[in-house]
Design a protein around this nucleic acid. Structure first.
Lengths: 279, 279
DNA sequence: TGCAGCGATACCTGGTCGGTATCGATCTGC
DNA sequence: GCAGATCGATACCGACCAGGTATCGCTGCA
């Protein structure tokens, strides 16, 4: 199996249409058909069911689609990382969800900078769930993320610390003066539906709450009395004066973790992880 | 970058000798030289430093070696999994370190077998640290392993339960009658050096203790008064009569976890994991 | 029934993969 | 210090295969 064949198969499996897949690949349709047929013959397996009107995946094709995508991104990651390793200046790209771990991040960067042989750390601010892609295709070397919210599938992680969660409410809201509340208290407010974050696919779950992408948007909507949210305690540092944070007793604890691709051989990554776990 | 080129590069990078690499690949040396040169030219990066007497890896080459190995095993895994998915009978290969999780394993298999649509579960008994390879190259679908002993780098895991550790001693040993001991008590016995297990690379760490590969060997050597060991409590069920297990208070807790490759799309794997976490 | 859409097939051309022969450099031993 | 051995690079060649165009055959639809 060659990368080229995988790229072809993934394109066809995603488009489920030879002509459009060929166009996306910048080639003519006949060689694409032939390449797929040959791949199937070499594997001895049918990957696609085709009539002259419709193309569908077989069970085997479904598996190969998932595997193939992973391999393709691993290949582009390999190229990127190799290229990076060849440049003289050792640098390190750290992906951080904007608004995450303010104080921890400062301490981490300071502590790492004090290490002998520390590389320049580039910060790559990203949106929720984007870490994984960035690490997987080699655009980032390390990431800070929140478990169990951010998926760390296929990554190695080390938990740095855990914390409780707080509900963010308009300062004038009746619950805002409470010293602590429970999940049930905030999830059942009809006038303040919980804000919705985009899922791993980038689409929003169904629900009445506002759709938000970052903390600024979120805080503005909460101040306007349109929504509320339960977030890790540390994300509520330096809150606007018109908002209040109330600890939610039974919200699941959130871990801030450092994550890296499992086969990383970069000394700089190992150093950063070591420093982080010692904080 | 093509798989073929990666395979060539990994061979050369491992042998550090074009001639032997070519032999291992079953080809002549000149086309191999040319393929590597072309790969370097396309990447625009030197991967190898060669004099006519010695070949060494550049920093970039070192990175690509690690990435390349991962990609190659991902490719063979993809082929194997695709082929498996094409067979009519859905089956599931579960890798278990021999001697692990006796009771838990029974319960898991029973519970899974009771699921609607359960696949036939094949057990693949393996030695320490082998799980990872088996999962990575697609020979197994799921594994039971012990954290933090077995590395789960690049795998997704779910912890099933945690337990303490016990020291295994000859029944006649003075410490054997104690109800509990500490690590310091067993690590400092000059007449009973701790047994050594093979590391992830397959080689044994330095030390005075006996080299062992499995529990049978181990127990025999302990009974003979040659060594001792600290292992998870559950592994000491049904101990020989001439051995004793003593809880070690300050030994790190051991988690038995179920692990699977991060991109697994098999419904059967998802089912097994769900059943396992509910146990 | 005729047409449009789509994948498969037939056929051609150029690139490239892999082979053999050989060169040039470097290390070794007498 | 020189001859031979070792090893990677280069030159050249044949076979294969990737990719292109033209066209066929099937299928759903008006």
């Amino acid at each position: 199996m060659e990368i080229r064949e995988l790229r072809y198969f993934v394109a066809v499996a995603e488009e489920l249409h030879f002509g459009e897949a060929a166009q996306r690949l910048g080639m003519a349709q006949p060689p694409l058909s032939r390449a797929i047929t040959q791949l199937e013959r070499r594997l001895g397996i049918a990957l696609l069911e085709r009539t002259s009107r419709k193309v569908t995946l077989t069970a085997a094709g479904d598996v190969l689609l998932a595997e193939g995508r992973a391999i393709l991104s691993a290949v582009t990651a390999a190229e990127r990382r190799t290229r990076r390793a060849a440049t003289a200046h050792p640098s390190l790209v750290l992906a951080v969800k904007s608004g995450t771990a303010g104080e921890l991040l400062t301490k981490l960067l300071d502590a790492y900078a004090a290490e002998p042989g520390a590389a320049t750390v580039e910060l790559l601010l990203c949106e929720a769930h984007q870490h994984q892609l960035l690490l997987q295709d080699g655009q980032a070397d390390v990431a800070l993320l929140h478990l169990p919210f951010d998926s760390a599938a296929g990554l190695d992680t080390e938990t740095l610390y855990t914390e409780g969660q707080v509900a963010i409410l308009p300062a004038s809201h009746p619950l805002a003066s409470r010293s602590q509340i429970r999940m049930a208290d905030v999830t059942t407010l009809p006038e303040l539906p919980m804000a919705r974050w985009p899922g791993p696919s980038g689409s929003y779950p169904e629900g009445p709450g506002a759709e938000v992408r970052n903390l600024t948007q979120l805080f503005q909507l909460i101040a306007l009395g349109r929504t509320t949210v339960v977030i890790p305690e540390s994300a509520s540092a330096d809150l606007r004066r018109d908002l209040a944070a109330v600890p939610v007793l039974d919200a699941p604890p959130v871990a801030t973790a450092i994550a890296w691709p499992p086969h990383s051989r970069l000394r700089t990554v190992a150093d950063l992880i070591r420093v982080a776990t010692r904080l």
